[in-house]
């Protein structure tokens, strides 16, 4: 994917075929065995989290995975975001966040919160990388969220 491709980013606006595909088979879901960095975004109120694993070679994102106990919007956005940034550099990833945020402006508040927790986990992973590069011993870096997802689940 190139910078130009970011213009055509499609986001989950209802139940279209692409959203359904990400729901049925989320991309890059799980853990990386030997990540360069790990970030967690945590909503302390709902206990919802996203954990992000990144494998970097310099500025290049060679691989990425994520996991969450959150709602399906979080899964779809995590799936789309990781798909976009793998094999691209960090500048591209920051651009992808800005572009997705711009498009999410027209979506529900809940979807914005879901997107934010995904992006925050990525930012946390970069903070973890920086800390590790500065010689700190940190297994993962945690960022706490300000807003909560309104989605609820049955038990």
């Amino acid at each position: 994917m190139t910078e130009e491709d970011l213009k055509d980013v499609e986001l989950p606006d209802g139940m279209n075929a692409e959203t359904l595909s990400h729901l049925m088979e989320p991309r890059n879901y799980g853990k990386l065995d030997k990540p360069s960095c790990i970030g967690v975004a945590l909503d302390e109120k709902t206990k919802e989290y996203v954990i992000f694993y990144g494998l970097l070679d310099g500025e290049m994102i060679k691989d990425a995975k994520f996991a969450t106990n959150g709602c399906q919007d979080t899964v779809v956005i995590g799936s789309m975001f990781t798909d976009m940034i793998i094999n691209n550099n960090l500048d591209y990833a920051h651009g992808a966040i800005a572009k997705m945020n711009e498009k999410l402006g027209s979506m529900s508040a809940q979807q914005q919160v879901c997107a934010d927790i995904v992006f925050s986990s990525f930012i946390a992973s970069l903070q973890n990388l920086e800390n590790l590069q500065n010689g700190e011993e940190e297994e993962l870096h945690v960022l706490k969220m300000k807003d909560s997802c309104e989605g609820e689940n049955l038990g």
């Binding site: 139940m15 689940n153 049955l154 038990g155």
Partner: peptide, 19 residues
Amino acid sequence: QIDALTHFLFEELYKEYEL
């Protein structure tokens, strides 16, 4: 209604497995 049901089922299938 189909959309609402689809959304509900994806959320709940995961949640029940998780629980």
